[in-house]
Nucleic acid binder design. Structure first.
Length: 265
DNA sequence: ATGGCTGGTAGAACCAGA
């Protein structure tokens, strides 16, 4: 029996068209077999397929909409798209699920940011974010297939996932109610957090830095908002995980960086 | 210094992101 490596990447790209140059550079450098994108910000009819097909990524599944959100799965290996959940029940394009060769499922999700105020009465977007995750909890509890769940979760759960735990306790992405809700999602399918499996707490690990800092590297005020989770059976086959911090310094960067996991399949 | 910027879309001293 032959074992080979399947390399899966996830990146909130903040517009796939604005990132045409550096997404190609990332693929050429990191050589993933599959790339999950979030915030493609493009309708399906205008998706820039040629960036990917010219590099041998012949299999592309897209769930986009005008202006905002949008997800895509770009692959060198055959994928079969079979699900697109609307976990916010409002029509936004935030999920895409595919089956991989061998029967493993890959789920790409863009969880809502949730607005500024961490209170669902004053800020409906915060309630929508929590409700989105509650629907994911229901879905997770019924899973019966080896599954990888990746994307921009918009929550940094651990103290070492943010630059300052105390200062961020009331900032959406690190509030106790979000962290508690994400913990119940993780428990619902016994998901393994592969980022923290390989880069263990309390080591700092971030995947996002605000555009507003003149030099993001000086204060290093990051958050770990992007995640790669897997059910136990698939997690046992994960061999490496890394984040591509260098991409944050490339020309016209996204504010998120790619995360990459290798699986022995 | 948690918004100081960025992208899309309209054609706005907009909106949204996190």
């Amino acid at each position: 029996m032959t074992t080979s490596t399947l390399r899966i990447a996830s990146w909130n790209i903040n517009s796939v068209r604005a990132r045409a140059a550096i997404v190609g550079q990332f693929l050429d450098d990191a050589l993933p077999d599959i790339l999950c994108l979030q915030e493609t910000k493009v309708e399906d009819g205008s998706f820039p397929h040629e960036i990917f097909t010219s590099r041998g990524y012949a299999h592309i599944a897209i769930n986009g909409q005008k202006m905002h959100h949008g997800v895509a799965i770009i692959s060198r290996v055959p994928i079969i798209e079979d699900q697109r959940h609307d976990w916010q029940a409002n029509g936004e394009a935030r999920h895409l699920g595919v089956s991989l060769p061998g029967g493993v499922r890959l789920e790409n999700v863009y969880i809502p940011a949730g607005g500024d105020i961490p209170n669902r009465d004053e800020n409906p977007k915060f309630g929508q974010k929590l409700d989105f995750i509650e629907r994911m909890i229901g879905w997770s509890g019924a899973l019966d297939v080896p599954t990888i769940l990746t994307g921009d979760f918009n929550i940094a759960p651990l103290e070492c996932d943010v630059w300052n735990h105390k200062q961020l306790l009331k900032v959406v992405s690190h509030t106790p109610v979000e962290v508690e809700t994400l913990a119940r999602l993780q428990a619902a399918a016994d998901w393994v957090d592969l980022g923290r499996h390989f880069i263990t707490a309390p080591e700092r690990l971030y995947t996002w830095w605000s555009y507003r800092a003149a030099d993001w590297t000086i204060a290093d005020r990051g958050r770990r908002l992007d995640h790669m989770w897997a059910t136990r059976d698939v997690a046992a086959r994960a061999t490496a995980h890394r984040v591509h911090r260098e991409c944050r310094s490339w020309e016209k960067p996204s504010d998120h960086i790619p995360i990459v996991t290798d699986f022995a399949i």
